[in-house]
Structure formats: structure tokens, C-alpha cells
Amino acid sequence: MTRDASAFGEMTDAGLLMAAAGGASSAFAEIVSRHYQPVYRLAWRMAGDAATAEDLTQEAFIKLWRNPRQVRDAAALKGWLMRVVANAAIDRARRPSLATLEEGPEPVDPQARPDAPLARAEASRLVDAALAELPHRQRQALALVYFENMPNAEAADIMEVSIDALESLLARARRSLKDRLAGQWRMLLDGLTETGS
């Protein structure tokens, strides 16, 4: 590691990958600094808890560190990381685990405070719980397009589906979310109006 870490800040992802392939951990630290947050956010949205999200994010970056040359299109490094972390999350969710069951989102009580506008924290909990109940692919599509603000083409590329298939997933996710929150829909919107969101 002979280069100054600040020099890596100006390099493209392709250059950083090449340097990391040569064992430069400072170059890899720059990759982590650029992409850790979005990869973690997707992992968190897919896994539903912070510890699993951190674990999944670590796995994705370590897979990259072990062999940086496996990324064929270095310009799409972020997409590669997002794909790896989402696939890892889906694989892990398929494995039965007591920890996952214990740490899953709390069930929503649709009868709770039916008339009162929901407090922001309670509203967040309801929405998060409804999102957590969506099938993984629908949740991934929503996370990429709505939460990470990715263009449909980029999200479709990450999910390795056509744009039509992605839009179909999004449409089903929206319908499903609306169905799951049907009982609280008006309250949630009223709460947003009151808080000016």
C-alpha cells in the first residue's frame, strides 16, 4: 500500500477495483466508503434487522475483496454489490432460522386506535411491517426503485429481469402493500397531512 488514500478518492470504480485486485486495501476502503450505505440499506430492507443487514453487507464486500476481478463491468460495481447482497438475503431467508423468527417485525394490530391519527413512529412501524410481509422480489423492486431512486432499467438489470417484469413486480408490490394497509390507509394519509409530509 504505497499510494496515499486521498489519491484513491479521485479514481473511478474501475481503477479502484484494479488497485484492490493488486492488494491495495486503501483502494478497497474507498470502494466501501462509496457504496456501503446503499448496499446496507437494501440489505436492511430485505432482511428486516440491523444485525443481519450488516452481516449480509459484510459478506458482499468480502466476496468482492477476495476476487475483485470477478466484476466484469467495473462501471456497474454498485449494481453488482446490490445484486450480491439481495441474492444473499433471499438465500438466507429461505434457510429456516430461529433468530429470524425472533427478530422479525412485530405483527400489526389493525384494531389499534382506529380513529386517532397515527403517531409518526407508529406509522413507520406499520409501513415497515407491511413491507416486510411482501415477497422478497417485490420488496427488492420497491427498495431499488422507490427507496434507492434507481431508474427502472438499472433496477431491472440488478434483478436480472426485463423492464416489463420489473414493472409487473412493482405493480403487484403496490397493490399488495395497499391491501395489507387497507385498514390503516386513511389514517396513515391523514397523519401525513397533519404533519405536513
Binding site: Y36, Q37, Y40, R41, W44, R45, A50, A53, E54, T57, R120, A123, S124, L126, V127, D128, L131, L142, Y146, F147, L177, L181, W185, L188, L189, G191, L192, S197
Partner: peptide
């Protein structure tokens, strides 16, 4: 509604 979802920071 989605704006109500929690943000996740590392």
C-alpha cells in the same frame, strides 16, 4: 405512504 417507512442507516 412509503415515505413513512424508516430509513436505515448503517
Amino acid at each position: 405512504i412509503l415515505r413513512l417507512a424508516q430509513g436505515a442507516n448503517p
